[in-house]
Amino acid sequence: MFQDVTLGQYYMADSVIHRLDPRVKLVGTLVYMISLFLFNNIFCYTLAAILLIAVIAMSKVPVGYMLKGMKAIIFIMIFTVIFNVFFTSGNNLFSFGIIHISREGIRSAILMVIRLTLLIVSASIMTLTTTPNRLTDGMERLFRPLKLIKVPVHEVAMMMSIALRFIPILMEEADKIVKAQTARGALFDSKKLTDRVKSLIPLIVPLFISAFRRASDLALAMEARGYHGGEGRTKLYPLKYAARDYVSYVLLGLYIILIVFLGIMSARVVAHLTAENAYLSLIF
């Protein structure tokens, strides 16, 4: 029941991408995502896709494993396509009754699907290649300047890494409780919605209690070992940039320059399109 969740899971492998500093991956993913929103044309997306495919190939994460995570958003995808195809006004290609399908509608549906796919895949490649601990380490380090304005950066990072650590544990716990209550006649698999809603309380109450119990045990164990927040705390594995991290930043910079160049170029081409070759606007 809870085994199909792959989004946000780590895939263990030994690759350059895995070894990159988490800060590089965080900044890289963020910049990459922003770049997807800067321009909306097929050339820029092609460049972005090439970069992503190269990263996936280097990461040694099986493509099938990555795509499993996509299943979760298939509905959003379909919804986006329908919304774009039917509700974008423009040059009608064909219409039946009140439904009009326009050239612009198809164009924006295609581009939207590409954009969404690139977004999701880039986010999941980051989480698949970085352990939650390294990820929060990276965030803590990146957000450290915020301490100056009294943001409890360390505490937030600690909470995040504990929360992430607890997800699989609670998932296992939920699985056990589901089985136990099923044996007592609960109807989790019933087709009737009312049955399923009724069986939620016997799942959620024990799950909450177990989460609280674990949390207080953990808090005690941490205090017993002298944890007292971030003040003066050093890292066991301090983050340090290696040569590959600087190379990655440079490549990222090149990518941005290239995509901005491409974006401006194609915008110019579109501006100079004449009436006869207007159909070309479908691709630009």
């Binding site: 056990k176 136990a180 209550q181 016997p202 024990p206």
Partner: peptide, 29 residues
């Protein structure tokens, strides 16, 4: 469910009702 009963390891982690009596009523209900 009424024929084969299973008591899991640490079965007390599956208690959820407000009172002992209500919890024991859950199965037969």
């Amino acid at each position: 469910r009424g024929k084969v009963g299973i008591v899991f390891q640490y079965p007390e982690h599956q208690l959820f009702e407000e009172t002992v009596f209500k919890d024991v009523c859950y199965g037969p209900k």
